[in-house]
């Protein structure tokens, strides 16, 4: 949060956890009833709460082989639905620092970037290879290289995609955009003056 202290995020490596399924929405990641709070502090405690209850101990988060993982491997359109930052906040506070899947909902990916969390997409085939590899051998270390856009696991070095704007912000430490945006100074007011609905018709 310190505006002058930029932390570059070039890589994330650690053990991974697999949550299968497509279109996992943010209501599922953090049910709305836990958002009745003016801070994000407690969000991690309720991550996937209803899904975990419904799975009666069979949810990947309750599988001890995955305890303490840093990377979450998912499917297609992860984080769709509500724009709630409570979802990436819950994932982050639970301990995840990066997400790998075939695709992410736009707002979710944007929220992750703001928090310095990495979202990298892989092709359908590579994503499946990664999921299988991790499920077979959860002890292995999975590494994400942000500038090379790769995910390395036992199945090999898989090449993926991180949109350029996001990649640069992570690498340059501008993922928390406030300080970068403040640099525009007077240019902001100047843009405002050119807009009749702001400056007057």
């Amino acid at each position: 949060m310190n505006a002058n202290n930029l932390t570059s995020i070039e890589a994330v490596s650690g053990r991974a956890c697999v949550v299968r399924g497509d279109d996992i929405d943010t209501d599922r990641i953090i049910p709305a009833r836990f958002m009745k709070d003016i801070t994000f502090d407690a969000m991690g405690e309720h991550l996937f709460e209803d899904a975990r209850k419904a799975a009666k101990g069979n949810h990947p988060l309750d599988d001890e082989r995955f305890f303490g993982s840093d990377i979450l491997v998912v499917g297609k359109n992860f984080g769709c639905g509500s724009s709630r930052e409570h979802a990436p906040q819950a994932l982050m506070r639970y301990g995840f620092r990066a997400f790998v899947g075939q695709s992410f909902a736009d707002i979710f990916a944007g929220n992750c970037c703001s928090l310095g969390l990495v979202c990298i997409t892989l092709s359908e085939r590579d994503a499946e290879a990664l999921r299988e590899s991790v499920e077979l051998d959860p002890e292995q270390v999975v590494s994400i290289d942000v500038s090379a856009e790769t995910v390395t696991c036992r199945a090999g070095a898989l090449s993926g995609n991180i949109p350029k704007g996001t990649r640069d912000r992570l690498i340059e430490g501008h993922w928390d955009a406030t300080s970068l945006l403040l640099e525009a100074e007077g240019a902001i007011e100047k843009t405002a003056e050119g807009l009749p609905y702001v400056s007057g018709y």
């Binding site: 994000f40 724009s83 709630r84 930052e85 409570h86 990436p88 906040q89 707002i107 944007g110 929220n111 703001s114 928090l115 949109p163 704007g165 996001t166 912000r169 928390d176 955009a177 406030t178 970068l180 945006l181 403040l182 525009a184 902001i188 405002a192």
Partner: peptide
């Protein structure tokens, strides 16, 4: 645009957003 809370902070602070 629907945005997350860190972006709400960005807009409060600068009335701007970093957008692709």
């Amino acid at each position: 645009l629907g945005i997350g809370t860190s972006q709400v902070r960005d807009v409060l602070a600068t009335q701007t957003l970093a957008m692709g």
